[in-house]
């Protein structure tokens, strides 16, 4: 096999692949960050006393978790520009507006990520022993302080494993954005394959990168868990 194919430059595809990877990383990270934040808010909303809010959010989760990611991406990409144009029309602005594919894709993946993350957080908050919260309140802590010092640290530990899995899921969803014209890693590998007729090599290369990300995540997750659960380890620490 000719390894120079993977080098940057006029004959190699290294720079195209690197640009694709960069897009994948930016898109994935932005979606995970926004999605996790929205998921936390949605979980708090679901657990709130406002019936309509919690039912609405529960319905949102069911819909988002049942519909293919590709459909959500397409709907947001087309739908957002239609929506913005429709909203601007009453103000006399009649120009054609196109949403940036990157932000449409990020928003779609974030909204999907949020639906799954909110289920994780909701389960974690519900698993917090009531006594801990009551003890905090009995000591005169404000509701916010109870959240910051008791609920959040416990819930975060409980949800960490599932959140790491979700991160991988969202990263694996990023190649779908090539449907709205973005050049991610898989798309770059496909272009390289088309030009060189060496699809196999380039797709294997992109798979190796994805698996490396997955392996890194697993190591990080194990490290984080050993550190966060230090107090639960039995006997003298190994």
């Amino acid at each position: 096999m000719d390894w120079s194919l993977f080098l940057p430059g006029a004959t190699g595809w290294g720079d195209e692949l690197a640009a694709g990877l960069w897009l994948t990383l930016r898109l994935g990270l932005a979606s995970v960050l926004i999605g996790t934040g929205l998921g936390l808010l949605a979980a708090l909303g679901e657990l709130s006393r406002f019936r309509a809010l919690s039912h609405g959010l529960a319905a949102y989760n069911v819909v988002m978790r049942s519909v293919p990611e590709l459909l959500v991406i397409l709907l947001l990409y087309y739908g957002l520009s239609f929506l913005i144009m429709a909203l601007l029309r009453p103000f006399g602005i009649d120009s054609f507006i196109e949403v940036s594919p990157f932000w449409a894709g990020t928003l779609a993946l974030s909204l999907i990520h949020a639906a799954y993350a909110s289920e994780v957080f909701r389960g974690a908050f519900q698993a917090i022993p009531k006594g801990q919260v009551e003890a905090g309140l009995a000591f005169g802590m404000s509701r916010f302080l109870v959240f910051r010092r008791i609920k959040w640290p416990v819930a975060f530990r409980l949800s960490l494993g599932a959140l790491a899995n979700l991160l991988m899921t969202t990263f694996k969803n990023t190649p779908l954005v090539s449907a709205i014209g973005l050049q991610d890693l898989i798309r770059a590998a496909g272009d390289a394959g088309q030009n060189t007729k060496l699809y196999f090599q380039f797709f294997i290369a992109s798979l190796v990168i994805y698996l490396a990300i997955a392996a890194l995540m697993q190591i990080f997750q194990m490290r984080a868990e050993t550190n966060l659960y230090a107090h639960l380890r039995r006997g003298p620490s190994a």
Partner: peptide
């Protein structure tokens, strides 16, 4: 392998790569 690989990558690998 199959949990870490995006579906599209596996699909393309088989669809475009196998004939090679």
């Amino acid at each position: 392998f199959f949990r870490g690989a995006p579906i599209l990558a596996v699909l393309f690998l088989l669809y475009y790569g196998l004939p090679q």
